[in-house]
Nucleic acid binder design. Structure first.
Length: 279
DNA sequence: CATCAACCCTGAGAGC
DNA sequence: TGCTCTCAGGGTTGAT
């Protein structure tokens, strides 16, 4: 994580601003500072700065787990990966001193207002792009979980067309965009499906239940402003509503038997062997 | 096509 | 208190 609900929360805040800070819309980028070159995925750092300086941000939206900022010319795209945040803050404190760049701040966009947008990333896994066409980054992504065209019939056929462990498939962004480990574990539990089931063995009813569980758990995450299980993102409440994630050995909220933890696709996987039978 | 290991990184938490 | 060790996480890459 951050997964879809956390990114959605961040985007919403960037769009509307806060009591202390404005939103990003119509902010003009005056200068760009990069403190860790590898954060810039495309193009090279100098071209990235050159393309952005003087450019105006025309909005903010989310695609999968990506942050998308359309500009007057071209597009700025970011991915927080493990431990990132994107925030807007005043350049100067109230007593007129320059607010220092923090230890983990990797890319700083100085606006020609008195604010700046900061891409912070503890583990340096996050990435940013400047591209003419957003499809060069988004092109391989699967559908959005809330896409109205993604109905249970379409989802069933998507599952039928592959023969993969359902947990790994759901986390594959080219299959479906936005799910990470937390919400995948929760959605599988809530639909009673074992993480190791092969995707093409799910029945139509199971596919329907799974899609609805995915949408419900993501909605719940968005409504609670995301999960704050780590030090990089605070303010969310979904961590209090986990039914299985990070609860190995605890009682299943459904049947009371202990929740089990396994590794599936190199990821910690939490489930109830009784409520999610392998069949 | 599916699976898996390694890699990129840092801080938290456990064990000593 | 402070050291060392393991682990977590999203996504890419390369091997099988």
């Amino acid at each position: 994580m951050p997964e879809l609900p956390e990114v959605e929360t961040i985007i919403n805040r960037l769009k509307t601003g806060t009591q202390e800070t404005p939103g990003v819309k119509d902010q003009i980028i005056q200068s760009v500072q990069v403190t860790w070159d590898q954060i810039i995925a495309q193009p090279d750092v100098n071209s990235f700065k050159l393309a952005l300086e003087g450019n105006k941000i025309s909005g903010a939206s989310r695609r999968g787990k990506f942050l998308h900022f359309p500009l007057t010319k071209g597009h700025l795209i970011g991915h927080l990966r493990m431990s990132g945040e994107m925030r807007i803050e005043p350049v100067y404190s109230q007593n007129g001193n320059l607010n220092p760049v923090e230890k983990y701040d990797k890319v700083i966009f100085n606006f020609n207002s008195s604010y700046r947008m900061v891409f912070s990333n503890i583990r340096k896994f996050g990435r940013m792009w400047y591209v003419e066409d957003p499809q060069t980054v988004f092109g391989t992504l699967g559908p959005e979980p809330f896409d109205p065209e993604l109905n249970s019939s379409v989802f069933y056929h998507m599952l039928q067309s592959r023969n993969r462990q359902i947990k790994s498939l759901l986390m594959d962004q080219s299959f479906l965009a936005g799910l990470g480990n937390i919400y995948t574990n929760e959605a599988l539990f809530r639909s009673g499906i074992h993480p190791l089931r092969k995707s093409d063995t799910l029945s139509r009813n199971e596919a329907t239940d799974l899609l609805h569980a995915i949408q419900a758990v993501l909605r719940q995450g968005i409504d609670t402003l995301g999960a704050s299980i780590d030090w990089f993102y605070r303010g969310g409440g979904f961590q209090n509503e986990f039914l299985v994630y990070d609860r190995s050995g605890e009682a299943c909220p459904n049947c009371g038997r202990p929740i089990q933890k396994d590794t599936v696709g190199q990821r910690g996987t939490y489930f109830c062997p009784h409520c999610q039978p392998i069949n």
